[in-house]
Amino acid sequence: MRFKHLHELNAICTAESKTIAQLMIEEQVQETNTPEADVVQQMSEYYQVMKEAVHKGLNEDTVSRSGLTGGDGKRMAEYIRKGETCSGDASALAMAYALCVSEVNASMGRIVATPTAGSCGIIPGVFISSQERFGWSDEHLVNGLFCAGAIGYVIANNSFISGAEGGCQAEVGSAIGMAAGAMVELRGGTPEQVVHAVGLALKNTLGLICDPVAGLVEIPCIVRNGLGAVTALAAADMALAGVRSAIPSDEVIDVMLEVGSAMPSRHRETAQGGLAQTPTGRKMMEKLAKPKAKRAPEPELETDGAAGSASE
């Protein structure tokens, strides 16, 4: 790839008068030696999977494997129909769709990791609700996914995208940054505005811990996906209005790395802290089945075999 940082992404796109999506497609074709049509086809299939997940969440009763969660996406959609939203219908619908996809995920249904399954609701929530609102073609949204992918690629390679490594800021936070930046490009914003949207969004999730109840991708993950979709729309609006991230977005990504590295392990997906260890969180965990596996006979796991390379 010709870029590793967001400022490079902006510089290349500006110099070559390209959208971030166009550059990402070109780089993907080059990197994987795959024809452009196949690359675009693959992403189009992913977009269809996202749409199916929204549809499933809206129309079926999704109950998670643990039985702890389900039905909130539908609940939100019904509430919007009554016309009483506080955050506005556009935000509320993005939130409803994001909840739907996250609930389908918790029920072991099919989703696309964007960038992870724990954060799989945010991009579909923002994209599919905006497509309905603005009447965009699928092709336009598929381009948006390439733009989101380019942003995620930078975050993933300079910081992290998994809760186990960097907390929820890495997972839901990254998805919000990706969705916000992509939304700016979808609305015709410049690559520079895209980059600012990412920084604005990420600053708002720095420090967010990963504290899933019973270690499951349900509480608080599903709700954070719903609210994350709204934050993404808001950050996109800020950037499109001309608000800039005073701390450059690449530096914000570095802060995510710093904060995530300093986060104690109990706040990185282990379910040993945060909401998971509240009295209610503990009760929920106790109710669920205990692991059935035996303990492994020790010692185990030798990753360091005989070193050295074969002689030639």
């Binding site: 992913y46 494997r65 696309v112 964007t114 399954a117 724990g118």
Partner: peptide, 9 residues
């Protein structure tokens, strides 16, 4: 980053 298509969660 975008992908895989997968069974949750």
């Amino acid at each position: 980053i975008i992908g895989p298509s997968m069974t949750g969660p």
